[in-house]
């Protein structure tokens, strides 16, 4: 690890964060991709730099650390799967709205503004008054 690469990873994360906070899904995807690169920079520099860790090709004492490499390899492939899924979301969004804007959830906004009457409350209110004898005249007929 050097200051240069630490700064590079930080820049990738910062720019990625900025893009992830946007409302256009394609920007979010690019942001996620950049953050993935940043994470891989961190991973790969967490291990020692050196020669390819292939036994027999050189002296093992000069090998690059293979453990972070394996982690980074996994990360690369997974982020491809994530990208594919996010792009499918963008595609779906385009099919439905002809755009990839992530709008606020209308129902959530509605709950925040006006509240939401739950079914059990509706039931309870329908049964009110709890007092079961509704008749205001308590007198009865003659025995």
């Amino acid at each position: 690890m050097s200051v240069l690469l630490a700064a590079t990873a930080a820049a990738l994360f910062g720019i990625g964060t900025y893009l992830v906070l946007q409302r256009k899904l394609s920007r979010v995807i690019v942001g996620v991709g950049l953050m993935g690169h940043g994470a891989n920079v961190l991973l790969i520099t967490a291990g020692r730099r050196g020669r390819s860790p292939i036994i027999g090709s050189s002296d093992p004492s000069g090998f690059a650390d293979p453990v972070p490499q394996a982690l980074a390899l996994t990360a690369i492939v997974i982020s491809f799967g994530v990208t594919a899924l996010l792009l499918a979301l963008a595609y779906r969004s385009w099919l439905l709205t002809h755009d990839d804007e992530i709008a606020d959830d209308a129902e959530d906004r509605e709950v925040a503004r006006h509240g939401h009457r739950d079914a059990e409350l509706v039931d309870a209110a329908a049964v009110e008054p709890v007092d079961p004898e509704g008749d205001p005249t308590p007198g009865e007929g003659t025995p």
Binding site: M1, V3, L5, A6, A7, A9, A10, A11, F13, G14, I15, T17, Y18, L21, G38, L42, T45, A46, G47, R48, S61, F63, D65, V67
Partner: peptide, 23 residues
């Protein structure tokens, strides 16, 4: 938020600097 994330990553990266010898 972006600057905060970047700053955090930068500090983290420096603190976790790689060991010079194989673990």
């Amino acid at each position: 938020v972006a600057v905060a994330v970047a700053g955090s990553v930068f500090v983290l990266a420096l603190v976790m600097a790689a060991p010079e010898h194989p673990t």
